[in-house]
Design a binder for these strands. Structure first.
Length: 431
RNA sequence: GCGGGCGUCGCCAAGUGGUUAAGGCAGCGGCUUGUGGCGCCGCUAUUCGGGGGUUCGAAUCCCCUCGCUCGCCCCA
């Protein structure tokens, strides 16, 4: 076996699987379109510095999961591990002042160097939505409901929305001060992982999985007690509105999320159906990111949905495929040319036509048409070529009677009539 | 980076030390060169992820290695 193989953690998506992907993407895009969210596309490759500064050097993503390499000009480049930093960069670079508020989405591959497992790949796909330049809690609500509605439109059930608030920069500073003081005292009773985080990213200790540490943390200072009145009111109003909108949620004070840039609202949507990688959607507010990256003070909030996990969760009704409408059986020199030109004409209709290219026997071609479940069939052979007409008839399982029509190659009207009577009616009733 | 499970045809598999490695699906060819669905017949792994070892003899036992997979960490 010295054939080529795909790289670990990457996958080939084959035509059959892509039917579902395309349907999922279509539903998502429609929902975004109706919500006035506009698409943005940024490069997959960025300078490494962007992610180090944007996401935070202490984070797991940056410290151990990036695909980083030197290009031929000795520049350090990184395949994007997430989309927010790139979008922020693009907006700053392209003059964010001229468009101070915008609703944006992007969809595409992201790369993280991790051990693959169920629902986790090294190259995976995300839908990201960013509301940039929106400050009020109304934007938090709209973006949470947008994420929720997309998942609902896809027919995904049994989702859990978790929310938390991280406060603003000052809230966090004063909390961190108290928390560090407490950590100093309790350091030795924490698990090793958490001890390591004290210097790098103390907030992350809050969502430790270690049971012992969890218990000890119950007596630690709580972020919520350090929030300013303004921050608290903001959070309370979000909870209030979610209740009024009947979006079920649970509060999770330990929801911190792995990226440094979050402020105020953090949220996550999970599903038990996913196994251990249960997060489908993660997001939050990042009011300081853009200014930290050199832009003007611009509050923003966003989320990302993992498409692979979405595909795993969405039902198989999205796998349904539209079959061939007309299969053109053809054989003989003149017949083949006529068949090609007829197939081109047929592509002006909303029909799926397939021209047989094999030159095989008629019986072979019929077998192929049958395998494809073609709804109808056109036959062009030497006889037809001679008479300048083709044979057309219905083909599916309900039409074994071989009732054929003959249509002249010049008679477009008769062809159109035949199509609308026999094919278009059934196609529209299906959709 | 650390644990557990697994690697036999494109896919699903039987085989657990003895001469030619079942079977099914898919594919190809034929019965049937101008009309399909069913059926029947035939073809498709000198080789069991790779390398080394034990043995008269290995897909089957041992060692190493690679890959996949599930979980931990973390995240989408």
């Amino acid at each position: 076996m010295n054939n080529f193989k795909n790289l670990r953690g990457t996958v080939d998506l084959l035509p059959d699987q892509l039917i579902k992907w395309q349907n999922v993407e279509k539903i998502i895009k429609e929902q975004l379109f109706r919500s006035s969210v506009k698409e943005i596309r940024t490069p997959i490759l960025e300078m490494t510095e962007l992610f180090m500064r944007g996401i935070g050097e202490g984070t797991d993503v940056v410290s151990k999961e990036m695909y980083t390499f030197l290009d031929r000009g000795e520049r350090s480049c990184t395949l994007r591990p997430e989309g927010t930093a790139s979008v922020a960069r693009a907006l700053i670079q392209n003059g964010i002042k001229t468009k101070p508020s915008q609703k944006l989405w992007y969809m595409g591959p992201m790369f993280r160097y991790e051990r693959p497992q169920a629902g986790r790949q090294r190259q995976f796909h995300q839908l990201g939505v960013e509301y940039v330049g929106y400050k009020s809690s109304r934007s938090d609500i709209e973006i949470i409901t947008l994420a929720w509605d997309i998942l609902e439109k896809l027919g995904i059930k049994e989702l859990n929305l978790e929310i938390n608030t991280l406060g603003d920069h000052n809230d966090r500073l004063s909390f961190q001060k108290a928390f560090l003081k407490w950590l100093e005292v309790n350091k030795n009773s924490l698990d090793l992982d958490s001890q390591n985080r004290i210097d790098k990213n103390p907030l992350r200790i809050l969502d430790t999985k270690d049971i012992q540490t969890k218990k000890i943390l119950e007596d630690a200072p709580r972020l919520i007690d350090f929030l300013s009145e303004k921050s608290i009111n903001r959070y309370l109003s979000i909870k209030e509105k979610l209740k009024l909108l009947k979006i079920p949620f649970i509060e999770n004070f330990n929801l911190v999320r792995g990226l440094d840039y979050y402020t105020h609202t953090a949220f996550e949507i999970t599903s038990g159906a996913l196994g251990s990688q249960s997060t489908v959607c993660g997001g939050g507010r990042y009011d300081n990111l853009i200014s930290q990256m050199g832009g003007i003070e611009t509050p923003a909030i966003g989320f990302a949905i993992g498409l692979e996990r979405l595909i795993l969760l969405s039902g198989n009704e999205l796998e349904e495929n539209r079959g061939t409408d007309i299969y053109i059986v053809n054989k003989g020199f003149d017949a083949e040319t006529l068949a090609i030109s007829l197939s081109r004409r047929l592509r002006n209709y909303d029909l799926i036509t397939e021209l047989d290219l094999s030159g095989a026997s008629f019986s072979k071609q019929f077998k192929k048409a049958n395998k494809l479940n073609s709804k109808s069939i056109i036959v062009i052979g030497d006889d037809e070529a001679l008479r300048n007409e083709f044979v057309i008839r219905l083909f599916g399982e309900n039409s074994l009677d071989n009732k054929e029509d003959k249509i002249s190659f010049d008679d477009s009207i008769k062809l159109e009539k035949w199509i609308s009577k026999n094919l278009l009616a059934t196609i529209t009733s299906e959709n």
